[in-house]
Design a binder for these strands. Structure first.
Lengths: 265, 265
DNA sequence: ACCAATGTTTCACCTGGTGTAACACTGGCG
DNA sequence: CGCCAGTGTTACACCAGGTGAAACATTGGT
C-alpha cells in the first residue's frame, strides 16, 4: 500500500470548495465560509484559482460564485464500462475477503466477454497477467454463459449466430444451437452459469484445474455485466461453493447494478 | 479589482493533473509526469488527494489513473441560463469597451424578460441595482420586443395571449394584437427591436431619458436570449447608434450563440 | 447618518508542499 | 538465468508558499 503518500491539504480544500459550490447553485463568500469553515482570505485565494482553472466563475452582476458550465463536459467521454469497473472494484474487494476466492467482472463486447475488473490480484492464484481488456470466450467461460443465459432471447440469438461464423474452434459449439440453448435454459433456471469442463486452469504453467460460476448484473431486462467467482477445483466442490457463496454473489451483483445507476458518494 | 489576491499553486497543479487525466481516458504516472512536467512524488500526492476527493481513481487491474465516473454529474444541475450568462459575460465586456455604452442579455421567462448578465456595472449609468433576475416588460423593452419579433409565430401568439390576460397595465397593449404584430413585423424586417417611447430612464432619480435596441441570440429558429444596447437619449440619436453598432451587436449575438453550443476553452 | 454584515488587503508565522536522491519492483532481451 | 531500462515508491531536508488574525473597505438596511 502507499500508506506513506500524504495528500495535499491545499488541494483537498480546493476540492471541498468546488463541491460546496456544486451543491448550491450559487454561493457568496460568506456562504462558503459558513459551509466549509475556511477563513475568507483562504476562500478568496481558492476561488481565484478555481476561476483561473476554468471550473468556477464569479458573476459580474451579483458577485456570487458558481461552478463553470464547462464542467458539464467532465467525464463525458467515459464509457459505461468505466462506470461499471469503478463501482464494481470495491465490491469485488469485499467479496474476495468474504469468500477467500477471487471474482471478475466483465461485459460483452464484439463476440467475447471483456474483463473490466478483478480481485485476482489479491490472491496468489493469478492465471492471467492482469492486462486490461482480457477477453474470455462466450461458450466456454462461466461469465460468457451467464451473459447468454440471462440476456433477452433476441440478443442471445444474435450472439450465437455471430459465434457460429467465428473462426475460433471454441466458438463452434454454437453451430449446434439446440444443445447450447438447453444448457443455457438450465443455467437460467438455476440462477447461475458454470464454465465448460476443462476450460481455464489455475497457476503457473496451468497445472491445476479451475472452476467458476457466474451471475448476471441486471439493469432491467438487460445484462449490464457478469460477475464470476473462481476457485481451484481441487480445493472444494462446485456444490459447496454454490451453497456457500451464490447468495453473496447475487447480492453483490444487485449492489453493483444499484451503484452504477446511482453512484455512492 | 482583486489584483492582489494570489492564487494557490498547489491547487492549480491539482486542477492541471485532473485536466490531463480528463484528456486521456487513462494515464500512468509516467504519462502524467511527461505531460505536466511535475515531479513524480508530487504527482503521487496530487493523485492521492484527487482519489480521496472522489474525482479520480486508480484501477486495481492496471494501476492506471482515470477520472472518476462521479464527475459525470458535475454541473448537471446548471440551467441553460447559467451557460448563457457565463458565455455572454466576456462578450458583453468587450462590447461595452467597443461601444462605450452598456449591454444586457436576458431570456424569456414567465411572461417577462429576465436579465442574466449586464455590462452596466462598467458604466456610470446604472439605472437599476444589479440584482439577479431583474425582469423587464415584453412589450415596453427593446429586449422583450426582440424576443417576440424573432420567435416562431406560434410562440409569439402564445406569449401575447398570456400578456393580454396580465394585470400589469404595461402588458395591456397585447389586447390590440394587430397593432403589436405590425410593429414586431417591422422590427423583424429591420433586424433589431426598439423600446417603446418613454419606457426606462437613466441615472439617479430617473431624470434623463434612455433609449435601447436589441437583437436576438438565435439557436436555429429559437430565440435563445436577447442582447440589448442602451444609451442616454440625449447623448446621441437612435439612427446614429444603429449605424455604428448594429453590426457589432449582431456579431456578438452570433458569437454568444456559438459559445453556448460549444464553449470556448 | 448610523450600524451590521460582508468583502478585501496586509502581513508575519511556520507548516505543509516540494524535488532530489536513493530504493524497490517489473518486464524484456540476450 | 541475470542484466538492464523503465517505472513506481519512499525518505528526507529545505524553505517557498499557504495560512488566518487583524485591520480596513464596502455595501445594504431601516
Amino acid at each position: 500500500m502507499q500508506a506513506s503518500v500524504k495528500s495535499i491539504r491545499a488541494l483537498a480544500r480546493g476540492l471541498d470548495v468546488f463541491k460546496a459550490l456544486h451543491n448550491h447553485r450559487s454561493a457568496s463568500l460568506q456562504d462558503l465560509h459558513d459551509e466549509t469553515g475556511l477563513a475568507k482570505p483562504t476562500l478568496l485565494r481558492i476561488l481565484k484559482t478555481l476561476e483561473e482553472g476554468g471550473v468556477a466563475r464569479r458573476s459580474t452582476r451579483d458577485g456570487r460564485y458558481r461552478v463553470s458550465a464547462s464542467v458539464r463536459f467532465f467525464g463525458q467521454n467515459l464509457g459505461m464500462e468505466d462506470a461499471i469497473a469503478e463501482q464494481a472494484a470495491p465490491v469485488l474487494d469485499r467479496l474476495c475477503r468474504d469468500m477467500l476466492w477471487p471474482s471478475d467482472i466483465g461485459v460483452y463486447k464484439d463476440g467475447a466477454m471483456e474483463i473490466l475488473e478483478s480481485s485476482r490480484h489479491q490472491t496468489p492464484f493469478m492465471v492471467n497477467r492482469d492486462r486490461i481488456g482480457f477477453r474470455v470466450h462466450m461458450l466456454m467461460s462461466a461469465m460468457g454463459r451467464a451473459y447468454l443465459a440471462f440476456s433477452p432471447a433476441a440478443e442471445r440469438r444474435t450472439i450465437l449466430t455471430r459465434l457460429s461464423r467465428s473462426g475460433d474452434p471454441y466458438d463452434h459449439a454454437a453451430r449446434n444451437p439446440s444443445a447450447v440453448l438447453a444448457d443455457l435454459a438450465r443455467d437460467r433456471a438455476r440462477g447461475y452459469a458454470v464454465r465448460e469442463a476443462g476450460y481455464g486452469r489455475w497457476g503457473i504453467a496451468e497445472r491445476s484445474q479451475a472452476d467458476a460460476i457466474a451471475v448476471p448484473v441486471l439493469q432491467g431486462k438487460r445484462v449490464l455485466a457478469c460477475l464470476s467467482l473462481a476457485w481451484a477445483a481441487g480445493a472444494t466442490t462446485r456444490a459447496e461453493m454454490v451453497a456457500r457463496h451464490l447468495g453473496r454473489l447475487q447480492d453483490a451483483a444487485a449492489e453493483i447494478a444499484g451503484r452504477v445507476a446511482a453512484p455512492a458518494p
